[in-house]
């Protein structure tokens, strides 16, 4: 596997560790961490700081019966929940879970581009994108932040090349035309916290139809 060069930014990793990230970005970060040892280590470090803060926190008095109540429930404690899913093909465990263990159900967006929406809500959306090799995604800007994690193939835009495991963070300032690299189709996990803005008229119409 190629070396991962584009990682989760520090503030976003902290937000994941503290629980401040909503589901769409959380799914992308958990998927990237599943593929990236460096970010797994960074996550553990963030959690170590959270743990240190917990150790340093002031203590509250407990009701007198709580300790005995918890100790008495150890035997009755339900068994540990099933282990989270392992990766399946190009899809890391958290995505396998989001797909409920089934292959993606692709919907065509035209020009060979396909998508599979995993979640769309007020806090944003997250979906899989399938882009044929060499194909461009229409030029678009963002109202908020767009995260794109490459799962297969690669893409190139004005900023850099992104291969498997790489995470691109695009914000308000970036209007870009990502082009899928040669070889295998590019499959990405993409999440936004606001709808994308496309420049042409047609994409704007299809944007409503396809919820991208």
């Amino acid at each position: 596997m190629n070396e991962i060069r584009h990682h989760v930014p520090d503030p976003m990793m902290r937000d994941y560790a503290t629980g401040a990230l909503d589901y769409p970005f959380g799914l992308v970060v958990a998927s990237h961490v599943s593929l990236c040892d460096e970010c797994r280590a960074r996550l553990h470090s963030q959690e170590a700081l959270g743990g240190a803060a917990l150790e340093e926190a002031a203590a509250a008095d407990l009701s007198s019966g709580l300790r005995a109540a918890v100790l008495s429930r150890l035997d009755a404690a339900p068994p540990a929940p099933a282990a989270p899913p392992r990766r399946s093909g190009i899809y890391p465990g958290p995505l396998v879970e989001a797909l409920k263990g089934a292959p993606p159900r692709w919907k065509s967006l035209g020009l060979g581009v396909r998508q599979c929406i995993l979640h769309a809500g007020a806090e944003g959306s997250v979906r899989l994108l399938h882009i044929p090799a060499g194909q461009a995604v229409p030029e678009h800007g963002h109202n908020g932040i767009e995260l794109t994690l490459v799962l297969q193939g690669s893409f190139v835009d004005e900023t850099d090349r992104f291969g498997v495991g790489d995470l691109e963070v695009a914000d308000n300032d970036l209007t870009h035309v990502p082009v899928a690299g040669p070889g295998a189709p590019c499959i990405c996990l993409a999440a936004t916290d606001a709808p994308l803005r496309f420049k042409g008229l047609m994409p704007r119409l299809t944007q409503r139809l396809f919820r991208i």
Partner: peptide
């Protein structure tokens, strides 16, 4: 607090 659980990274193999 949330309707959906936080997705967790897969465990190391």
């Amino acid at each position: 607090a949330r309707r959906k659980r936080r997705p967790e990274p897969e465990e190391l193999t």
